[in-house]
Design a protein around this nucleic acid. Structure first.
Length: 246
DNA sequence: GCGACAG
DNA sequence: ATCTTGTCGC
């Protein structure tokens, strides 16, 4: 935990479930002051996708991360944790609903991934504090966001071919990109979360995209937490046998 | 007040 | 987010 957390309203013991929207907004404004959008300082060798799955109207959440090699994008390990939340889904406050569970799955990883890609936004957010940025700031992890729908800002539709993209702007600043990750398919919204630049997030998103609309980390994470929810996968930390990598 | 609105 | 069948297109 970054030491600054103990010097402000946010403490490691803070329970998100009991926060009011006003308090959550204040926390986002404070965390924003600790954002670092400088260019990536490392050469990534692993990248993980983070996501949650849940039954409709249920407070039980199935969270998890899938760690993949980079740039090979082969699954190396995954961490799954069953948790709960009562914080409702409110556009702009997704972090308060999903982070507690994802944090447990993250802490269960014996070795942290170089980068974590979230199913949601980084700075592509009204207060520049989407779930990816929020998680990055409180854990010091390098993060980025990949959302399937636009949350904030303005943009013009990018060209129809894979690889084309346009900027998403808000109040005069670029906060992310609308990226066509597959021919003639709706774009995804990419933005840096923490400890990487806008350009880094765009480059990484494209390098992580294969034949599907969603980048591999996010796509796999979504698949795994869903299998966990329906019972095909079990809770805990799991590593793939090195033999299966060849 | 009106429209927008990640998962 | 999740519930769902067929169907259009590459």
């Amino acid at each position: 935990m970054p030491d600054f957390l103990n010097r402000m309203v946010i403490t490691p013991e803070l329970n998100y479930d009991q926060l009011t929207i006003a308090e959550a907004t204040l926390i986002q404004q404070q965390l924003r002051g600790h954002l670092n959008l400088e260019p990536l300082q490392i050469e990534a060798k692993t990248i993980a996708g983070a996501d949650i799955s849940l039954d409709l109207y249920s407070e039980t959440v199935y969270a998890g991360l899938v760690v993949m090699s980079y740039p090979d994008l082969q699954p190396i390990a995954y961490s799954l944790v069953k948790s709960s939340t009562i914080f409702p889904y409110i556009p702009g406050y997704l972090a308060f609903r999903e982070i507690p569970a994802i944090l447990k799955a993250y802490e269960q990883l014996p070795v942290k991934p170089d980068i974590v890609m979230f199913d949601g936004n980084g700075i592509l957010h009204a207060r520049r504090m989407g779930i990816a940025s929020h998680f990055g700031v409180i854990t010091d992890a390098i993060t980025m966001g990949c959302a399937k729908k636009k949350l904030a800002g303005q943009y013009v539709d990018p060209g129809p071919s894979k690889g084309e993209y346009t900027q998403v702007t808000d109040k005069g600043e670029v906060i992310g990109y609308a990226v066509r990750t597959k021919d003639n398919v709706k774009p995804v919204f990419i933005s840096p979360g923490h400890q990487m630049s806008l350009e880094d997030s765009l480059t990484l998103a494209l390098k992580c995209t294969g034949k599907h609309r969603l980048p591999e980390p996010t796509r796999r994470a979504h698949e795994y937490v869903n299998r966990f929810r329906i019972g095909t996968l079990t809770e805990g930390y799991h590593e793939f046998d090195s033999r299966t990598l060849f």
